[in-house]
Design a binder for these strands. Structure first.
Lengths: 151, 151
DNA sequence: GCTTATTTGTTACATCTGTAACCATTGAAA
DNA sequence: TTTCAATGGTTACAGATGTAACAAATAAGC
């Protein structure tokens, strides 16, 4: 009896990583080519566009990034004049971050591109496959407590 | 009419990344706590365990890693005495890599742990959800040409 | 009120990563 | 052959990352 083998191609952590990497890489072209944003910058940017105004910590927990990543992304976006910091009158540790006019303009331009990307990708799947994928991902998120509602 | 918004939590690239990261992080504990392996080292190791003997390039294409990552992982595993390099008699650019006895022993010990991890994770899902997830991932792999058969 | 613990955010350091340059070797072209 | 392109693999360098230490401010315990 030969030693037991682990077929890596079928191993869930490996498959997820490969897929995530491929999809992210592909989508990254959209914001990298256009504006030279890095991934953490894009996430920070997208989170702010979605929620309007947040603290750095909130961005981190919500977009699943380490606080140093957020800190650096925020600095970069500020440098780019896409976001501003507003001190909190009550708690001087906190800064409220928000997109500037220029940032918002870029956001409004990016949103349709992002949606188109997703639509096109999912469009390559049949209806059943698409439902299976989205449902399966949701189920896995649930058991891992990665639901949006939970964070 | 308010500007169109992209809900990041529902955006496919983001969801995939988050899931992959969470699952990999969790599984990484298994080989990190036990042997102090890094992720590239684990992948190289697992690929060699699965296929017996390969060149560095083959490991790279098969396990989706950059050649510098493979090069460094191979060096580390060699240092650990888990793999050996054998020069190719016909082509002196090539080295055939294979696990040593110690490497194989560790591999045989890791395989059941990896399978148990996956089984436990999938076990938290219902049968339908599990099928949906695996089917959905497979479908997505297909449209992205990430099928194991294709590489 | 005073001391201590926690929170918010930045930065220093070490590590990891990819790009590009590189060496050695082999293959193709002529 | 001789020359030039392509391949296998390593390494130097620059950029990105996380850990840990840190400063500043607030909250909690007493």
């Amino acid at each position: 009896m030969q030693p037991e083998i682990l077929p890596l191609e079928q191993f869930l952590p490996y498959r997820l990583n490969r897929l995530a990497e491929a999809v992210s890489r592909e989508f990254a072209k959209t914001y990298r080519d256009r504006h030279g944003l890095t991934r953490p910058e894009w996430r920070t940017f997208a989170t702010l566009g979605q929620y309007g105004s947040m603290t750095a910590t909130a961005i981190g927990t919500h977009s699943a990034m380490h606080k140093t990543k957020v800190s650096r992304a925020v600095a970069a976006l500020e440098e780019r004049k896409w976001l501003t910091r507003t001190p909190d009158p009550a708690d001087r540790r906190i800064e409220h971050l928000a997109l500037t006019k220029a940032g918002l303009t870029a956001y409004r331009e990016m949103v349709p591109l992002a949606k188109a990307f997703e639509r096109e990708l999912l469009g390559k799947l049949g209806a059943k496959e698409r439902d299976a994928l989205l449902g399966g991902l949701h189920a896995l998120q649930s058991v891992l407590s990665l639901d949006p509602s939970e964070t």
